[in-house]
Amino acid sequence: MAKIHVSTTINGEPTEFLCDPADTVLDTLRDTLGLTGSKEGCGSGDCGACSITIDGRLVCSCLVLAAEADGHEIETIEGMAGSDHLHPLQRKFLETAALQCGICTPGFLMAAKSLLEKNPDPTETEVRYWLAGNLCRCTGYDKIVRAVMETAAEMREGAR
């Protein structure tokens, strides 16, 4: 079957690619574009390791067809840090050891960033339910939740 031509914006860069009709955004990011920061843990939208945003909306990139990305803006983990500075969430994850093996970390960071953009002052319960679509088997979530809460507090302080 003929490949589909897709024009999109990824992390601010205009990006074109060809994909098969059955390719997911995750397949394309990882195998075609070399953006392997998004991970595949399940391929069924249950683990959140492939979390990205499309037009600002948090999605599992394994559940979106690559062809559907045409004309849309994608943000991935690779776009989160600047060349000389980490995003406050990334920094806080490191300071508080909110990662162990790290395979779920890109997904958690994308999900947490999306949460704080919508809700800069989440309660612990709100953080836990927002992140309930991201599986972590190493940490028991304790340090992740704390990192998100602490980052939110610091970002609110910084915005004041």
Binding site: T36, S38, T76, I77, E78, M80, Q90, L99, G102, T105
Partner: peptide
Amino acid sequence: DGADKVTGRAAY
């Protein structure tokens, strides 16, 4: 290995 892991660089 932290910075690599929070930026998606770490190679699995």
